[in-house]
Design a protein around this nucleic acid. Structure first.
Length: 495
RNA sequence: GGGCCACUAGCUCAACUGGCAGAGCAGCGGACUUUUAAUCCGUAGGUUCCGGGUUCGAAUCCCGGGUGGCCCA
């Protein structure tokens, strides 16, 4: 009786667990509806009761009990012999047991897939982080919260696209392979194109291509871009992550600050029911408007004295030393200011704030501030102490942009491997004319973390980057499928 | 890259100061017609992450390595 079951090529359920709970959850205990449905999923629990068998079928939407009396259910013994985790399709009448559990009375059933490896403990589940990330296909079944987070992520992207499209934004796709890495300060991954015999870089940001599209006349564009940065792994960094970038012609930074706070409030309302959130046990209100404060102001709040680009560099360095900020001779006042801010002020923020007025020295693609010398019209949105987004009035002047690129190139020559290089084609595009434009990048992973109330990026990325699994010396029998000649110690039951 | 912590059965975890490697769930055999992590009886299951060392004796102590987690850079 243990030959492999015939697996159909197609199966057509007529109901889901959640839909049944919603439509029939209210019927009285001990009643039958006469309504026959077909459901499918994995058998996750089983309780034999002699001539009666209870099971719990789990599908993408939730769980529904199976009620199988021996005198009603065909192949009753085989149903009881299924492994936990087997996929089955079940047809039967919707009913509620005397004890009040909505159920499907099994009048027909079929195996859709066998689970040859046993699922984790039905009560304690799977907790080992390494196994959870490597075997996400198991994690998704046994840890309910995991499924919730990724459903939220999917809905967040869908809502975001619709919201932007409703405002005239066009979704575009730009290259992942970049001949020149650009658009951010980060170390790229390098790969090689054989036919061209040329190194290519995986993009660290889509920025420069999206602005080329504004030059090309697409006035409002966005891209949900997977970007790649060659950095370490941590609870907040995955080497590949998702960035929403958008550009809007004719706008300045204030346009995208308003857009950001409205989008985030919209998503919070849709996905969490409110702009008043709880994040890691602490209240957080993301409703608009968010506070605006300059980098200098925020530093001053923390260290008790005003610093800006006019502060003598010796004093800035002394302050860095005082606050354990490492600095180098090549760092100008702008870089020192940014480092001081990141060390002393960023993590101290909790409620949303737009940090404004970033130094030109550290913002090579942002337009000069209209009233603050040496500064740019750049902002970052900080929520719960972490950078959520970064945007600015775009630098549109080709001569200024060339000078900024060249300053970056000098830093690169001086050993800064995150610095930019001169992108001649981008300068050529600017030569054709980029109108006043605002741009914004939003860290989608961090936004999901915020709204799903999780603290590690690995919990919002389905398959986070991990070291490759170690090859064992030989295949461990315990790790192999309990099948065939490899497992002679397992007698064929009932043969 | 540095610091701290963890790694024991398929899963979740025990094993005191170095003294016979254990339990629950899952598995396997059996009982049970209203269960809810069902219950009950029986049974099987181990490279204690890997490699060295100390010791009469190591899951436990020491050294080196691996993987992961958290913190820092």
């Amino acid at each position: 009786m243990t030959e492999r079951p015939a697996i159909p090529y197609r199966f057509e359920p007529t109901a889901t667990a959640a839909a049944l709970q919603a439509s029939h959850g209210g019927i009285e205990d001990g009643t039958e509806t006469g309504e026959v449905v077909t459901v499918a999923g994995r058998l996750m629990l089983r309780r034999g009761q002699g001539k009666l068998l209870f099971g719990q079928l789990q599908d993408q939407t939730g769980r529904i009990q199976l009620f199988a009396p021996a005198n009603v259910t065909p192949r009753f013994a085989e149903l009881g012999a299924l492994s936990l985790g087997d996929w089955i399709g079940v047809t039967g009448e919707v009913m509620k047991t005397r004890k009040g559990e909505l159920s499907v009375k099994v009048t027909d059933w079929i195996v859709l897939a066998e689970a040859r490896r046993s699922f984790p403990d039905k009560w304690h589940g799977l907790t080992d982080p390494d196994t959870r990330y490597r075997q996400r296909y198991v994690d998704l079944w046994v840890n309910d919260d995991v499924r919730r987070v990724f459903l939220l992520r999917s809905r967040l992207l869908s809502l975001t696209r619709r919201w932007l499209e409703d405002r005239g934004y066009l979704e575009v796709e730009t290259p992942v392979f970049h001949p020149i890495p650009g658009g951010a300060l980060a170390r790229p991954f390098v790969t090689h194109h054989n036919a061209l015999d040329q190194d290519l870089f995986l993009r660290i940001a889509p920025e420069l291509y999206l602005k080329r599209l504004v030059v090309g006349g697409f006035e409002r564009v966005f891209e949900v871009a997977r970007v790649f940065r060659n950095e370490g792994l941590s609870p907040r960094h995955n080497p590949e992550f998702t960035m929403l970038e958008l550009y809007e012609a004719y706008g300045d930074w204030s346009v995208h600050m308003e857009l950001t706070e409205q989008l985030v409030a919209h998503l919070a309302t849709e996905l969490c029911g409110s702009t008043k959130l709880t994040y890691q046990g602490r209240d957080l209100d993301v409703s608009a408007p968010w506070r605006r404060a300059s980098m200098s102001e925020l530093i001053e709040e923390q260290i008790g004295r005003r610093v800006d680009l006019d502060t003598p560099i010796a004093e800035l360095r002394a302050l860095c030393d005082e606050h354990d900020v490492p600095w180098k001779d090549g760092h100008g006042p702008g870089k020192l200011l940014l480092e001081l801010y990141e060390k002393t002020a960023e993590a101290a923020q909790w409620d949303p704030v737009f940090v404004t007025d970033y130094p030109q020295e550290v913002s090579p693609l942002a337009r000069a501030h209209r009233s603050q010398a040496g500064m740019t019209e750049r902002f970052e949105g900080i929520v719960a102490g972490r950078e959520l987004c970064n945007g600015f009035s775009e630098l549109v002047d080709p001569d200024d942009q060339r000078a900024r690129f060249e300053a970056q190139a000098r830093q690169k020559d001086a050993g800064d491997d995150e610095a930019m290089v001169v992108d001649e084609d981008y300068l050529r595009a600017l030569d054709y004319g980029l109108p006043p434009t605002v741009g914004l990048g939003v860290g989608i992973d961090r936004l999901v973390m915020l709204l799903a109330d999780v603290s590690s990026i690995r919990d919002v990325v389905l398959f986070p980057t991990l070291r490759p699994e170690q090859e064992r010396g030989d295949a461990s029998p315990a790790d192999a499928p309990t099948e065939g000649a490899e497992a002679p110690e397992t007698p064929e039951p009932g043969a």
